[in-house]
Amino acid sequence: MTSEVSRLEEAEARRCAALMAGDASALEAMLAADLVHIHLNGRIDDKIGFMAGFRDTYLFRQVTRGPLNIRTWGDSAVMIGPLTQRLAIRTTGEEMAVRAITTQTWQRSGGEWLLTTCHNAPVSG
């Protein structure tokens, strides 16, 4: 395993930990300014919209990634793998379980990996 793959795995682990901890500052620092986040329902958010949903709408109870296929090309990387989440809607307390395959693109900037794109596709069953 290359050191960059290890660094990307660590970045994704920190991202998941920030989601579960409700740490908006840590999460925002890991996201590129031009983030594109595609939700399971097809809705597309930019960084501002994604962070607003994180702060105002959802509580992340559990975020688990399965085995990740990570490929790097210089300062760019693609990460693909399973994602399971348990979320609660802040206003109602309603809980949702999510199972998806997630494709992410990352860009190294200033020595740090930033998430630039996240696309989630539902897994049935």
Results as ranks from 00 to 15, higher is better:
Thr2Gln: 10
Glu4Cys: 11
Glu9Asp: 09
Glu9Pro: 14
Glu10Pro: 10
Glu10Arg: 07
Ala11Phe: 06
Glu12Gln: 08
Ala13Arg: 14
Arg14His: 04
Arg14Asn: 10
Cys16Lys: 14
Cys16Val: 08
Ala18Ile: 04
Ala18Asp: 07
Met20Ser: 11
Met20Gly: 12
Ala21Cys: 00
Ala21Tyr: 00
Gly22Glu: 00
Leu27Ser: 08
Glu28Ser: 13
Ala29Trp: 02
Ala29Leu: 03
Ala29Lys: 00
Ala29Asp: 12
Leu31Asn: 06
Ala32Met: 01
Ala32Asp: 06
Val36His: 02
Val36Thr: 13
Ile38His: 11
Ile38Ala: 07
Ile38Lys: 00
Ile38Asp: 09
His39Met: 10
Asn41Ala: 12
Asn41Leu: 05
Asn41Asp: 15
Gly42Gln: 06
Asp45Pro: 09
Asp46Lys: 04
Asp46Tyr: 02
Ile48Thr: 15
Phe50Gln: 08
Phe50Ile: 09
Ala52Phe: 08
Thr57Met: 00
Tyr58Asn: 14
Arg61Pro: 04
Val63Tyr: 01
Thr64Met: 11
Gly66Val: 09
Gly66Asp: 06
Pro67Ser: 13
Leu68Gln: 12
Ile70Ser: 15
Asp75Met: 00
Ser76Met: 05
Gly81Gln: 12
Gly81Trp: 09
Pro82Asp: 08
Leu83Gly: 10
Gln85Met: 15
Gln85Tyr: 10
Gln85Lys: 14
Arg86Tyr: 01
Arg86Met: 02
Leu87Lys: 15
Ala88Val: 08
Thr91Ser: 12
Thr91Gly: 15
Thr91Pro: 06
Glu94Ile: 11
Glu95Phe: 07
Met96Val: 07
Val98Glu: 11
Val98Asn: 14
Ala100Lys: 02
Gln107Met: 07
Gln107Trp: 01
Trp113His: 04
Thr116Lys: 05
Thr116Met: 05
Thr116Ser: 10
Thr117Leu: 15
His119Gly: 08
His119Cys: 08
His119Phe: 03
Ala121Trp: 00
Pro122Ala: 00
Pro122Tyr: 05
Pro122Asn: 01
Ser124Asp: 02
Ser124Asn: 06
Ser124Ala: 03
